[in-house]
Design a protein around this nucleic acid. Structure first.
Lengths: 291, 291
DNA sequence: GGGGGTTGTGAACCCCCTGTTACCGAGGCA
DNA sequence: TGCCTCGGTAACAGGGGGTTCACAACCCCC
């Protein structure tokens, strides 16, 4: 652990929190619990009752479902671009095992779940060894089947590359999460990590006034102590760097007694040093500035 | 984004691989795909009969097993470098759900199986949604449990297929996944396995800043313990070898408080030791560096 | 216009982050 | 068994960046 540091250490140190990404811009992967991406599902089964109930749940989730009464040629499966495959092994009879192996070999990346009636341990083990990801006994609840499919898909995804985060554009600014940095044209603002987290939060809520406590909570990761001026200090640092890189624009506006609001505004040449707190309706809902 | 992501190595796999091919640049050590590599298993359970039977099977497979009577702090799990975790949720009582969620959040790459007594559909679904990969009802046959563990581990592995990967070209560097080695011209950098995995990850995401936690997660395969300096040390080793083989170029840039970014840059003769944080758009979207 | 609270600004302090080196244990190999 | 390589940990030095403080400037309200 920490090298030559004195013994006393607060548990929730700033670093660990900051490192854990206090503010997920959203639309991010962590929503797995709630919604998952639309999934294309193929079901090889003949049980119409089961299929009907399953279809309802699948549709409710926004997924798509194709039903097949028997074995589907592997090439066809490939063409379907499936997200997952559900098989009742026993509708395929004795050839089911060979088929399962075939699918497992040809499409190892395809999540495959066997959903069949009464079975023995040996059968289940065999299926799993042949490439199936799971075996769920019928009768089963469709929600459990869906949850199991999601679990398998999720497992495959944690190994996949992280989703790409788009850049935020505002005025002359380009805020790139993959760089932990903001740019004007090609020039970096040379923001520190905290400065970047702060501007990302503000720009991510452009047009909205954010209270200091909120800002602190989301950038620092824990509650702001009374009298803490950190937010003000960092806003100043940000303004300084913004002013230097993009002198024709003002980005961060102070709301006295409240907090700060991000909204890119072109500076009028002959502008008097206007009040920061003065607003117009246009500024407030400045949607035209960002998306 | 980067198509050619390095695979996420599960701990057990990784160790065995690293151990098997310490220096040998390689000849297709990927044969491990079929046979399951030794797996380090943790079981949170109190059922001595179950544990005994399971232990026999686990040992027969050449795996290792650690048993815990109750919840294990996540940091401890990290330190154990597990390949999979088996939990009897009900021995943890009401706190079991929170614990499961905690594990799922901190160690998303860790295959987790709940193996508990009678349960409801709702309980199983809940566990799966919280991050469990599977739920197997007790009493169960240990062979099925093992087969299910293997299926999950396999799923995590196929997500990053060892398919033929083209060589990555960057500056004077040529990173050949089929050789597990990097070259300058024809001269090998003589990278170790870990060093190679690291540079492959970085170069595969050229132009993007990767956080230490991300790097660790994807190269080492499990969550980074607080205070771990392994990434830094390996970056230094890499820089040393890169400097020796390609002195006219700088490849790895530090982003203070964040992590590292790979971007080949020719060293100017009279160059002052410039800041790593300084970027140009050219570097950012450095597509010309790869592909 | 004046007073009290709020915000801007600059600088000092010091913690912690990173680079770097050395050391140790594990495992392969002879 | 002994040597060697490799991975991981510990320790230290140096410097960047976060926090805090003091004071000035400012805003709002009475």
């Amino acid at each position: 652990m920490a090298a030559s540091q004195p013994p006393v250490r607060l548990p929730a140190t700033m670093h660990s929190i900051a490192a854990v990404t206090p503010d997920r811009p959203l639309g991010d992967s962590n929503s797995q619990g709630a919604r998952s991406a639309p999934l294309r599902l193929a079901v090889i089964d003949g049980d119409s009752g089961f299929l009907h109930v399953l279809d309802k749940r699948v549709c409710a989730r926004g997924w798509q479902q194709r039903v097949f009464p028997g074995a589907v040629p592997v090439e066809e499966l490939v063409a379907l671009r499936l997200g997952a495959l559900v098989i009742d092994l026993f509708v395929l009879g004795a050839s089911g095992w060979a088929y399962l192996e075939q699918v497992g070999t040809a499409l190892p990346a395809l999540p495959t779940i066997v959903c069949s009636g009464p079975s023995t341990v040996a059968q289940r083990v065999r299926a799993l060894r042949l490439g199936a990801d799971d075996w769920l006994a019928k009768p089963c609840h469709p929600e459990e089947l869906i949850a199991r499919i999601e679990a398998i898909v999720r497992r495959g995804r944690v190994a996949a590359p992280p989703a790409e985060r788009p850049a935020l554009e505002a005025g002359e600014l380009s805020i790139r999460s993959d760089q932990f940095q903001a740019f004007v044209g090609t020039r970096s603002l040379d923001l520190t990590r905290r400065e970047f987290e702060l501007i990302r939060l503000l720009a991510g809520n452009a047009g909205h006034v954010l209270e200091r406590e909120t800002i602190y909570q989301r950038v620092w990761g824990y509650a702001m102590a009374h009298g803490d001026r950190s937010v003000d200090v960092f806003v100043r640092k940000l303004r300084q760097k913004l002013e230097r890189a993009s002198p024709q624009w003002r980005y961060i506006h102070t709301h006295f007694g409240v907090g700060y609001r991000f909204a890119p505004e072109r500076v009028d040449a002959g502008e008097a040093p206007s009040m920061a707190g003065e607003l117009t309706a246009g500024e407030l809902t400045a949607e035209h500035l960002l998306q």
